[in-house]
């Protein structure tokens, strides 16, 4: 394997923000992403939006998957997106939200720059395919 042979791997941050202690879903998704050949960085529980921004910027992930089941998405997600903008990272990061998101909020999140919202029961393969198709091309 030569030094110039390109080895592109999709990098994802699976993030839990705020006071929401339910991480089973985040774990399941982390594993599925790993098995799909992605590199997954898991944030751990109870992270502040700044921590997620810090991790997204430093790890230079292609995909940021935010898992929220507490209903606080309408305060937390905008904070994260603002933070990403501050570091010029919003343009080429695919932001996904998963969890319990009412339909009327979904539109709002998408207007903010969230690429897709996945609710309960979304098939794993669908998410993986979505990531593969929409992963930002950074050349």
């Amino acid at each position: 394997m030569g030094a110039d042979q390109e080895q592109r791997t999709v990098r994802c941050l699976v993030a839990k923000v705020g006071l929401d202690g339910h991480d089973r879903g985040a774990h399941v998704i982390s594993r599925a992403f790993r098995d799909a050949g992605f590199e997954v960085i898991y944030s751990g529980l109870h992270r502040a939006p700044e921590e997620i921004v810090q991790a997204t910027v430093q790890e230079d992930v292609d995909v940021l998957g935010i898992s929220i089941l507490s209903g606080a998405h309408d305060t937390l997600v905008p904070k994260i997106i603002d933070g990403l903008e501050e570091y010029d990272a919003s343009g080429d990061t695919l932001v996904l939200v998963g969890g319990i998101i009412p339909d009327e909020d979904e539109e709002q999140l998408k207007e903010l720059g969230v690429a897709e919202v996945f609710g309960p029961g979304a098939p794993m393969q669908e998410m993986i395919d979505f990531v593969r198709e929409n992963v930002p091309d950074r050349r």
Binding site: F38, E39, V40, I41, Y42, S43, A48, Q54, Q58, E59
Partner: peptide, 29 residues
């Protein structure tokens, strides 16, 4: 699969929001 779960970042709790600690996870790809 080449996939990886990089978990070291979870322990970086003392440096929240401090950009002057630049933490980067790498996999042994």
């Amino acid at each position: 699969t080449g996939g990886a779960v990089l978990g070291d970042r979870i322990r970086m709790g003392s440096n929240v929001g401090d950009m002057d600690v630049f933490f980067r996870s790498m996999s042994a790809r």
